[in-house]
Design a protein around this nucleic acid. Structure first.
Length: 670
DNA sequence: GTTAGGG
DNA sequence: CCCTAAC
């Protein structure tokens, strides 16, 4: 077997936890009056939720008139019940780490914001990816009870309106249990394993040119730092960051260690860090990474992989079908290997029922900015508010079948390609905001100035992909944990796949939209990274780091640093240009320079990714040439370099081959 | 712990 | 970005 720690292929073997079904009574009521088999219950339920959210203001009588409060209530009831159970299992482990939602939002209607009343009793449900809906038909499904493995994946290309699907997604996981009526009591069992992945919050230092130095930005995305340019002069959270940095490095090391072992010391360290939200960092690095928001181009190599990625998973053979959908425009692929699909007794009926288990919701990207002296609690609430705001802005459910958005609500499932015998290769649901940005109508007593808005830094250029979190199906009973881990990366890849360049977002794009919430005070203690600690899959340690493309600002900082320090001193360069960017190592910096040099050497048409200003590339080449020659000679010192530059200024302006540096460089060096 | 390079 | 050899 390969010694590779990472497994980049194969996504099969995911074993999804059994998802409890809703109490019979609930499900019953969800049935559409004209549909006995409850076929569209899932849809209805989804629609109900979305509808409710939509109606927040009043009775905007969503088109889905069928959606009644009862249903919603039921839905919430179910969810709540599950939540309660789940809380016990997960809360302490995940929420205590500073996740945005915590006990503050326990089922307490009184605390609910008006516009959040539809956010389910526990808003954090959304965050926690716990929202199951199931549709089930006849009661003769007993035989259908089976073990099922779900295929999940994400496909990037796809949707004609991928943009929308990016906002909120429902990730479904399959649940193949027999009819609840027969196998489950009203007390739906909660699979304590429900994945409760939360995004990895990270503090983001303000760039030197930032104006609000006293604020700490919490980017839901881990690569947010890019948005703020260089990180040279931040001083606000230096101490923390340094700690974080060392911790990060250490963890990286451990993670990359082939034979990683838990040593007592480490444990202590880990424990001590828990309060800073780093507790599970290394243990769940993979998960964390997977949760990180990423917007980038998939390396061509992996593109193929993603191509197949499927978001929808269901077992057509089984009477039940599960759909898993990721935010990536709902494309899917059969990731599950042949072996992954559990053999299911196939009881074909005329009227097939479709079961849906919507495992999670994905929340659009959130951007939060709060003062350092804010309290943790406030921050949490702020995040919650942000989530609520987004959700409360109105949602609608979107459906993707075979990569295409199904817009006609009047189609039957069969017509839409969703039938027992139909070609259900792909099916996905998405929660789409009906409007964006959201109006800041949320005010918490503790949150003086909440003003969510669409942030639009230089992030704008990035592919929009507001995924606040991934819905990773977790497997509690995880008998196949190893396999799970094995495919973790795939999942990761898929889930984070950027918008397919070939499939440019069409209409209604909320692209680039992100809610930015600004709160007042916040404690310094709050910055910490808050990795989620999914119970399972803590074992897998290695995971390729999420790709974090260098922003133009970063490139500029890098170029400047290299101009001054030269190549060969990457540690210094790193410190100079990315001192507070913990995720940038000197190796990264060095590699980036390498690629920059290459990029600058090729034709613009051949360049990919975020375009780097030619001006910078020119500087790259110049500096590269200069330092290369310097190396050939004698280890030129910075001072000498500058001297040389000075001497050649003006005379060699356009001579890139000259060892001299252009005036521009001289300027920056001074 | 850093560098330098190949992958 | 990862991995390693080499320093």
């Amino acid at each position: 077997m390969s010694s590779k720690k990472r497994v980049r292929h194969g996504f099969s073997g995911y074993e999804f936890p059994v998802i409890p079904k809703a109490p019979r009574s609930v499900r019953r009521r969800h049935s559409h009056k004209n549909i006995d088999n409850d076929q569209i219950c899932a849809f209805e339920l989804l629609a109900a939720v979305a509808g409710e959210l939509l109606q927040e203001s009043e009775s905007s009588a969503c088109s889905n008139a069928a959606v009644g409060k009862d249903k919603l209530s039921d839905c919430r009831e179910v969810v709540k019940r599950e939540q309660l159970k789940e809380d016990n299992a997960v809360k302490s482990e995940c929420f205590d780490q500073g996740s945005c939602v915590e006990s503050d939002y326990l089922p307490d209607p009184a605390m609910q914001e008006p516009n959040l009343k539809y956010s389910l009793d526990k808003p954090n449900h959304i965050e926690n990816n716990i929202f199951h809906t199931e549709v089930e038909g006849g009661s003769s499904n007993l035989e259908d009870v089976c073990d099922q493995r779900t295929d999940t994946g994400t496909q990037k290309e796809l949707t004609d309106d991928g943009k929308q699907t990016e906002d909120l997604t429902l990730a479904n996981s399959c649940s193949l249990k027999g009819p609840i009526e027969k196998h489950v009591n009203n007390n739906s069992t909660i699979n304590s394993d429900s994945s409760v992945q939360l995004p990895w919050y990270r503090t983001v230092p303000r760039p030197s040119f930032g104006k609000q130095r006293n604020s700490v930005k919490l980017g839901i995305r881990d690569d947010d730092e890019n948005s703020f340019g260089s990180y040279r002069h931040n001083t606000n959270i230096r101490a923390f960051r340094q700690t974080s940095h060392s911790g990060y490095k250490r963890m990286r090391k451990m993670l990359t260690s082939r034979r990683w072992k838990v040593d007592p010391q480490l444990k202590d360290w880990e424990r001590s860090c828990s309060k800073y939200g780093m507790k599970s960092f290394h243990r769940n690095r993979k998960r964390v990474c997977a949760l990180e928001r990423c917007r980038f181009e998939i390396p061509s190599k992996r593109r193929k992989l993603c191509h197949y990625s499927s978001v929808v998973a269901y077992d057509q053979q089984a009477n039940s079908k599960s759909i898993s959908n990721s935010s990536e425009k709902g494309i899917k692929r059969d990731i599950t290997g042949a072996g992954a699909s559990a053999s299911v007794r196939n009881h074909r009926k005329k009227d097939s029922n479709v079961k849906f288990s919507i495992k999670s919701f994905k929340v659009p990207e959130l951007f939060i900015e709060v003062p350092e002296n804010e309290t943790v609690g406030s921050l949490k609430r702020t995040v919650m508010e942000a989530v609520k705001t987004i959700l409360g802005s109105g949602l609608r459910v979107g459906m993707v079948v075979q990569g295409k958005k199904v817009r006609d609500d009047n189609k039957t499932l069969q017509q839409a390609g969703i039938s027992q015998n139909g070609n259900l290769d792909t099916l996905g649901f998405t929660l789409e905001p009906s409007s964006y940005p959201v109006s800041p109508s949320l005010h918490s007593k503790d949150l003086p100035a909440l003003s969510p808005y669409v942030a639009d830094h230089d992030l704008t250029r990035r592919p929009p992909n507001p995924i606040m979190e991934l819905a990773l199906p977790s497997s509690s009973s995880a008998p196949s944990e190893s396999r799970l881990d094995e495919h973790d990366e795939d999942y990761h890849e898929l889930a984070l796949s950027p918008t397919n360049p070939i499939d440019p977002p069409s209409d209604v794009a909320i692209s680039g939209s992100r809610a930015l919430v600004v709160v007042s005070p916040l404690n310094a203690e709050a910055h910490p990274v808050v990795p989620v600690n999914p119970k399972n899959r803590c074992s897998e340690l290695s995971q390729r780091r999420t790709r974090r493309p260098f922003s133009v600002a970063e490139v500029e900082a890098l170029v400047e640093a290299v101009e001054q320090l030269g190549t060969g001193r990457w540690r210094d360069v790193k410190i100079r240009a990315f001192e507070y960017a913990d995720h940038r190592t000197y190796v990264d910096v060095k590699d980036k320079w390498k690629t920059l040099v290459h990029t600058a050497s090729i034709a613009p048409q051949q360049r990919r990714g975020e375009p780097v200003p030619q001006e910078l590339l020119d500087r790259v080449l110049i500096a590269h040439d200069y330092w290369s020659k310097q190396h050939g000679k004698h280890q030129a010192e910075p001072s000498k370099m500058i001297e040389a530059q000075m001497q050649n200024v003006g005379a060699l302006e356009n001579n890139n081959n000259s060892v001299s540096m252009p005036s521009k460089m001289v300027g920056s060096a001074i």
